[in-house]
Amino acid sequence: MLHTFVALVQDRPGVLTRVASLFRRLNINIVSLTVGESERPDTSRMTIVCDAHENAAHRIRASLYKLETTISVDEVNRTEAVVRELCLIKVAAGPNQPHGLHSRSQIFELAQVFRARVVDLAPESIMLEMTGSASKIEGLLQVLGESGYSILEVSRTGRMAMRRGHHTSRVLQALGTRPTLNPSVFAEDPDALPSDQTLPNIFDE
């Protein structure tokens, strides 16, 4: 199954290697990994999506935290977090294509339905930009394919995830989120935690 981890790591040379090497050592394939600056100075935020056994999440998170360059690690699932991905798609469209010159306007319509934007127009191709959940991007790609368009290039950033803010229990229920006692405890800087605070038993999960 897919696991999504959000890690705050030091912004230093070699940190990405340490994270990537960890997954290699565990023989786990990384589905996507995005890194960028975070709200903290000298700190990057990584979103790592990997395909691993259901029981592997705890060990991956613990192993990630064992890296000296890791500040915090959080595992998020879809309902607890907002997950987005950016995708660029280049589609063949022009007079020589099956739909001829109509193809452009049809692609414009499709793009509108999926809330994608046209960012480049060339005589034989159109480039679309789209942000959304992975399933939405896959939906657009599927429709384009089934409509007979040939997709020339796809570039996806991979998923970025951010845990949702503190909602009321009703909102969480509506979102389908299991209420947890202290969901953000692993995301916080451990130094900031009061020493008497007990942690949720992660082995009950």
Partner: peptide, 13 residues
């Protein structure tokens, strides 16, 4: 030294 955030044996355990 930065102890692991999971590094506290929980009272219920």
């Amino acid at each position: 030294y930065r102890p692991h955030p999971m590094l506290r044996a929980e009272s219920s355990s």
